[in-house]
Design a protein around this nucleic acid. Sequence first.
DNA 1: GTAGGGTTAG
Length: 614
Amino acid sequence: MEITGVAFGIPFRHSITDSSSQSTKPFSARKSPKLQIQHASDLPSTLTRVGEMLTVKELNTALKHFGNSNKFNNISQLFLWMQENKKVDVYSYSHYIKFMANKLDASTILKLYNNIQDASVKDNVYVCNCVLRCLLRNGKFDTSIKLFRQMKEDGLVPDLVTYSTLIAGCVKVKDGYPKTLELIQELQDNNLRMDDVIYGAVLAVCASNDKWEEAECYFKQMKSEGRSPNVYHYSSLLNAYSACGNFQKADVLIQDMKSEGLVPNQVILTTLLKVYVRGGLFEKSRELVAELESSGYAEDEMPYCVLMDGLAKAGQIHEAKVIFDEMMKKQVRSDGYAHSIMISAFCRAKLFQEAKQLAKDFQTTFNKYDVVIMNSMLCAFCRAGEMDSVMETLRKMDEFAISPDYNTFNILIKYFCSKNMYLLAYRTVEDMRSKGYQPTEELCSSLIFHLGQAKAHSEAFSIYNILKYSKRSICKALHEKILHILLAGKLLKDAYVVFKDNATFISGPTTKKFASAFMKSGNINLINDVMKTLHSCGYKIDLDLFEMAVSRYLGQPEKKDLLLHLLQWMPGQGYVVDPSTRNLILKNSHLFGRQLIAEVLSKQRIKLKAQESR
DNA sequence: GTAGGGTTAG
């Protein structure tokens, strides 16, 4: 066997990069550890072999290498190894988090951050900024604000990048505008000054929150600070004008922009179209679309979509359809937005056959789906009563792994209700809630009613509880409604809970109905509790109720302590058993101890006499 | 060697 090449060849360290050499050494042995890592087919075992030879800096470079070539699996394996072998620094964290920003979910990133032991890494501004950005990318705005607070307490000194990251996170967030104001105030308090990037983010926040006056104000402010707005700043302000359809302001802004030497691009002109459409200037809008077409800016569907949607929402559904047909004739590139807009528009206009037709058309011509188009189609099929198509669409959602959203659930639940499929509707509400969506009270309330009618008592109660434990306030009459359903279903323990929590909303007759149902067949161990609850709610317990309770106890002598307790409790609240109940007790007193019973009853009599003499 | 932004449609 020839071994010379391996045993006596060029020393390993020197062979490094020359993978094309004719050496007989094994391929891997001819590479530097660094390259071995970068080219490893089995990274963990390569790391075990050569990882220790590399510095943190070199490992970071490898991390960057994997990051730049989108090798996410390798990034994870390498970073994990680095952590386990204590070869991490701030660069490792910021590289890793940056590259994995779209792959790490919120809980993973939080765990990663919270597990950092080295305080100098944990309050490093680069690391913190990366972590915050990653959370915001995951849509976790509140979490990131909370973490930001925590970071500051732990020693983070935020910089301009921190604030711009957070402000950018405020776009498309409820309450994003007030939060942005707070952040601006805070950065100013920290003696930082807004730069072009922050102005850009702030203008976008204003635009998405319908704050055109505020947007205008920031725009002027940045100009007065000697900054030159770029095309993005202009387009955000223009977008802010679109919400109110202020076309005069928009036209002036475009002139201003041109005079600054900026050329309106496709986005600017499309946004201007949005302003005209929102302003109801449909003739001017059509002209602008024509202008976009001749500039080559109408090669995809967006401008048509803006116009169609505006027309449809202004009640001009047929005019919208004309645009749609023209668009189809011109074979404009479409991702399905145009279909989605028209399907929803037809549904809104209650033109369900037309909606269904377009939905079918979409199914046969597109093979690309998302949750919005799925919802449009579902809505159309449901409203047109096409059960098979509804089911097929649901199968498609599964097939394409599209998770249902709030709208999906709502459409389905309403549909199932309309078809009297209440149990299916019930299961869909449960599903909806388990996915974190809150059904509306109106929907729940009607479903509770129908489930009750269908004798699905415990299902009705589940829906009631979903409503109750949601943060919304619920209609007071619902408590009484569910109480009737629970009584009908003999779910007396649940009925008791509902009664106890909502006694003030329950009418006298319903209270009476609950009380006698409970005395008759409720859990014997709760009878005294129910009595006390009734009394403390101001309900005057009548003697029949006591008689029922006493009969229950007499039927189960092992509960004698409960009977004695009840009898002892009564006089203090002004109750005394009636003569027939008294006789009943006396007749059975051997079961309880004659002496005791006699004492208790005589105490009741004394009390009674005292009351009478008063 | 590390981190930030902003524009149009359902």
